[in-house]
Design a protein around this nucleic acid. Structure first.
Lengths: 197, 197
DNA sequence: CCACAGAAGAAACTCGCCGTATCTAACAGC
DNA sequence: GCTGTTAGATACGGCGAGTTTCTTCTGTGG
């Protein structure tokens, strides 16, 4: 049976479309991603896509979501600063390149299609890096390297916010220097300041 | 002589266009702003606009730039926290509403028209709020309210970055609570941390 | 094995907007 | 006035969003 199946359906087809969308994002970026190009790449046609997602923004969000969130392992370099640099770098790689353009692009369409706004916000606020800071920090406390800290929600989210902000502004990749600046000039001082309560 | 001038030219016309673009940004936002709508509003036509700016993004940046940067007066409430809250609020109002959408929108087109990227970056990094933090802080030091601080470039820019980030994510206005969180959970602790060197 | 419902895929269409090209009429400077 | 410049009107080509229509496949239930 040479598996003469020519038409995919259901989950299989859906996955093919999301993969194609993801590939397009990587190849040409959000601004140049068209529904037609995704359809062509997936070997299907526009209506098939529109039957599933109402517009470009939601398709892209779905493609984004279809990639597993990759809960990052908490690094353990033996020093708080080392752990933080690694953590920031991991976040940067994830946010890097296409990601920032996508966020900006989807953000814009948010105003054409307000339903998308909520989706987007959830995705950003619930990014999976929040708790890792807590872990890393706790280890530093146990090592006696750092006084105990009441890590507020804002402070926990800050690494992601800093990196995303940087990526959005710079458009390009985030250098190691930038990461060092963020860790040394902002995040470590903040943690020290939080410790005095 | 009733000044029967019907056609504006040069600077006068240019200003009319920029004003119209600004008004459109306020009324309908970046996503729905079209060159045609700006032309109509300015009482002129598309080619006149295209003779001056090569695309939407640059027109909008020009309109943005044509509004005076409004160097904010440093507040003096008698307490560092009070001053910071006012400062953050001022930034928020300036970044508010349309501003964030515009930034996101222009950002997206940055990838279609790479020349725009540099313009945008300058505009964001040279935002006029940076030095005010220094002033506010110095007064707190003179009052003996706060230990002296070596304010790094990153730390000085942080308020703007925090607010912009918040505006971009939330889409809507920034509440007083958010500002209080940013000041109390992030910026004041950071300043305290920076002071211990 | 067949029929039928439902979904895939192809194609064509509307619409809005971008950016350009063409034309004419007003204006400014001499 | 004469002349070069530029505003403003109009129309056009192109692209991509989102929709509609129609045909063709496919798997399920009888």
């Amino acid at each position: 049976m040479p598996e003469t199946r020519t038409r995919r359906r259901g989950v299989e087809l859906e996955k093919a479309i999301l993969d194609a969308a993801w590939a397009e994002l990587n190849d040409v970026g959000y601004a140049r991603l068209t529904i037609e190009s995704v359809a062509a790449r997936a070997g299907t046609s526009k209506p098939v896509i529109y039957r599933r997602w109402p517009n470009r923004a939601e398709l892209v969000l779905a493609a984004w979501g279809s990639r597993a969130p990759v809960r990052p392992p908490s690094p353990d370099t033996g020093s708080l600063r080392g752990d933080l640099v690694i953590l920031f770098t991991k976040i940067a790689r994830r946010v890097d390149g296409m990601m920032n353009e996508m966020i900006a692009g989807v953000m814009t369409e948010t105003f054409r299609h307000p339903e998308v706004a909520a989706l987007m916000r959830d995705r950003l606020v619930n990014a999976p890096f929040g708790k890792v800071v807590g872990t890393v920090l706790q280890r530093a406390v146990e090592r006696g390297e750092h006084p105990p800290v009441e890590l507020t929600h804002r402070a926990g989210r800050l690494p992601i916010d800093l990196i995303r902000n940087e990526a959005l502004i710079n458009g390009g990749s985030i250098t190691d220097e930038t990461i060092a600046e963020l860790v040394d000039q902002v995040y470590l001082p903040l943690l020290r300041g939080l410790a005095r309560d």
